[in-house]
């Protein structure tokens, strides 16, 4: 049996997470098929043809699919789902939104946030904000999986994969919901999910102005993405999708610089697998220091400008 990978798109292009999904799928058995759903997604299709390890590309390109509705995505996936042993999609807001619907309609159990695949029936996933790992076995005939992207390496390289391309017929689509507004923050910074370096701020920054005045120049110098703790987001220092943690983004950059963040377990859940962690905090007993590679005890109002100027 084959594996179905459902790619996430961003403005008609493929998100880079598709490459981690392929690595994950390669740990299973059988061919990998890629499903692209959206409207005017020619760019994504062109990119898909260059991905290593894809045998077949399934496309549904239709004006009815411009708004990423979970109810519609579900119907499309269901129209082909029973041909597959595994269905993989990212554990992002996109994947979490529709895959449980697919699983429910198939009467199968979904495995969320998979961080390791031993074989076609054995998986590992974090529980309790990553404080514990569960090693599990599932033997159902179709296994829907959301994949924690930061736990898998991207497949490298571009090649003409000669994949067979099939345009799927549009199934009957329910009209249960409709997007009426979309506010995305435009930013020239790298994406938080895929950035190599992340500068993240917490309540210690003290104000929205300070958050931006101190952290942006540092992030600029390092070509880094900006992140935040829940407290910083709740206080309005940063937008909601900057939140790193159990219930926000879960990332593993090369370098994570935590500024004025205490290190609550829910925050650590989102960044503790970063390759190198730097923590700047005035409290020598802050929990963040327990997982930092480099701990600097000091007042962020002095340390951060000094760091920025010396880089």
């Amino acid at each position: 049996m084959a594996n179905l990978i459902i790619a996430e798109l961003e403005k008609s292009s493929l998100k880079s997470s598709v490459r981690q999904l392929i690595t994950a799928a390669n740990k299973l058995q059988g061919d990998n098929h890629l499903l692209l759903i959206g409207y005017q997604i020619g760019d994504a299709l062109a990119q898909a043809k260059q991905l290593p390890g894809i045998k077949k590309i399934l496309v549904v390109d239709n004006p009815a699919l411009g708004d990423e509705s979970p109810e519609k995505t579900t119907e499309i996936v269901l129209s082909i789902a029973t041909n597959y042993s595994h269905i993989l999609t990212p554990a992002s807001a996109f994947g979490k939104n529709f895959l449980p619907r697919v699983a429910a309609r198939l009467d199968m159990t979904q495995i969320s946030d998979v961080i390791a695949i031993q074989d076609a029936t054995h998986f590992s996933r974090p529980i309790y904000a990553g404080s514990l790992i569960a090693d599990i076995e599932v033997t159902e005939s179709i296994i829907p999986l959301t994949i924690r992207i930061s736990a898998f390496d991207a497949v490298m390289g571009d090649e003409d994969n000669q994949a067979e391309i099939t345009h799927l017929a549009l199934p009957d689509l329910p009209q249960l919901s409709q997007r009426i507004a979309l506010q995305l923050h435009e930013s020239s910074r790298p994406n938080l999910d895929s950035a190599k370096i992340v500068v993240s701020g917490g309540r210690g920054l003290g104000s929205e102005e300070n958050f931006h005045q101190l952290l942006e120049p540092l992030a600029d110098k390092l070509s880094a993405a900006l992140g935040a703790s829940r407290a910083a987001v709740d206080l309005g220092y940063a937008p909601n999708d900057y939140q790193v943690g159990q219930t926000g983004k879960i990332i593993a950059p090369q370098l994570y610089i935590a500024v004025g963040i205490s290190g609550a377990i829910q925050h650590l859940a989102g960044m503790k697998n970063s390759k190198c962690i730097v923590a700047i905090n005035k409290d020598p007993d802050a929990a963040i220091f327990s997982i930092a590679d480099y701990s600097l005890v000091g007042d962020l109002n002095e340390v951060v400008p000094e760091l920025t100027s010396k880089l």
Binding site: A93, F94, Q178, I180, L182, Q183, L184, H185, D241, K249
Partner: peptide
């Protein structure tokens, strides 16, 4: 709350 910002949906 979605990746990249906010979306408003009108649901029945």
């Amino acid at each position: 709350e979605i990746d990249g910002g906010l979306e408003t949906v009108h649901v029945s």
